[in-house]
């Protein structure tokens, strides 16, 4: 996805930074983070509306024409700003993957189910007594 290694190093740094800001988990990040995530992805790419639509599709986001134009403009601005980082020579710098120095955070292999079947299904938009239900799709 990211062409040049140097760029990739920086992408790693950004992700780690994102995760650190997000605290416990980087999933379901607020929209600002999503924008940043997209921009890291786009770092090495030429940003045009087609690219924005592709990314939007992959992230299952929908923009109308106006929104797409605005997003293209904003992402390009952020990228330009981020491009500043390219001025630093990182040739002999190992990619920074995680912000903390911590390693080997393991758990022992002890098994217990954290929530009940009922609790698991509780928030599902659609369910029956056994399963989560989703719109039918082909395997």
């Amino acid at each position: 996805m990211l062409a040049a290694p140097r760029i990739e190093h920086k992408a790693h740094a950004i992700y780690a930074w994102l995760a650190a800001i997000a605290g416990t988990g980087a999933q379901h990040l607020p929209i600002e983070f999503l924008e940043l995530t997209i921009l890291v992805y786009l770092w090495a790419m030429k940003i045009d509306e087609a690219t924005i639509h592709k990314i939007a599709h992959l992230a299952r986001l929908e923009f109308d024409e106006k929104g797409a134009a605005l997003m293209t403009q904003k992402v390009s601005q952020i990228l330009e700003w981020m491009d500043k980082l390219n001025e630093v020579n990182t040739d002999n710098v190992q990619p920074l993957i995680h912000m903390s120095e911590e390693v080997n955070v393991f758990r022992d292999d002890t098994a217990f189910n954290g929530i009940t079947h009922q609790e698991a299904l509780h928030n599902a938009p659609k369910k029956d007594s056994d399963y989560f239900r989703v719109p039918k799709f082909l395997g």
Binding site: M1, H12, A19, I97, H98, S100, V103, N104
Partner: peptide, 12 residues
């Protein structure tokens, strides 16, 4: 769009 998992620390 692979990227390093931020929630899991590296294994040494």
């Amino acid at each position: 769009r692979y990227f390093p998992e931020p929630d899991l620390q590296p294994m040494r």
